[in-house]
Design a protein around this nucleic acid. Structure first.
Length: 154
DNA sequence: GCCAACGTTGGC
DNA sequence: GCCAACGTTGGC
């Protein structure tokens, strides 16, 4: 089982939006970065869990926990001309972009902000990809140790 | 709104 | 294959 962190800008799709979705489940579409896609397509498995992270907002931070309830399948928004994530170079016969379905397990009792996570960047969260300088990855694996530690400070 | 950091594109 | 130009991300 792998642990993950997935980012979303709450103005685009927030934890509240997920809570209000049917079955508290949504398809995680719109990922247009190869590294993030590869993680999702190749390594995200049914039953894996992920932290839901709000980016580009105040405060940015971890706000909830989701579970992967469907493994990777083609992201058809790439083929939809009217979708903002349309990709003219994506070939329907050989899909370039993928998505998974995630279901809300629970909201955290409080937001664990980026600033708070940074307090541990020399120690328990030393290797957390999120804290690496210039990191822009929207889907990243985290270790069980990091997962457990973050939950312990909730 | 700014801008550093990064990924992608495309000319050569 | 190199790398400049460009677009995007995301914290501040």
């Amino acid at each position: 089982m792998t642990f993950w962190l997935i980012k979303s800008e709450p103005t685009a799709f927030s934890i509240a939006d997920l809570a209000n979705s049917k079955n508290k489940t949504t398809c995680w579409d719109g990922v247009r970065n190869y590294q993030a896609r590869n993680f999702m397509r190749d390594d995200m498995k049914l039953g894996d869990v992920a932290f839901f992270y709000h980016s580009s907002c105040e405060p940015a931070g971890i706000v909830g926990i989701v579970e992967i309830v469907r493994e990777a399948y083609p992201d058809d928004t790439a083929l939809d001309k009217h979708n903002k994530h349309f990709d003219a170079k994506s070939d329907p016969k050989s899909p370039r972009w993928f998505m998974v379905d995630v279901k809300l397990k629970r909201k955290l009792k409080r937001t664990i902000s980026l600033a708070e996570l940074r307090q541990y960047e020399q120690r328990a969260l030393k290797d957390l990809l999120l804290l690496r300088k210039g990191n822009r990855l929207s889907i990243m694996p985290i270790t069980k140790q990091q997962w457990d530690f973050i939950l312990s400070i909730e």
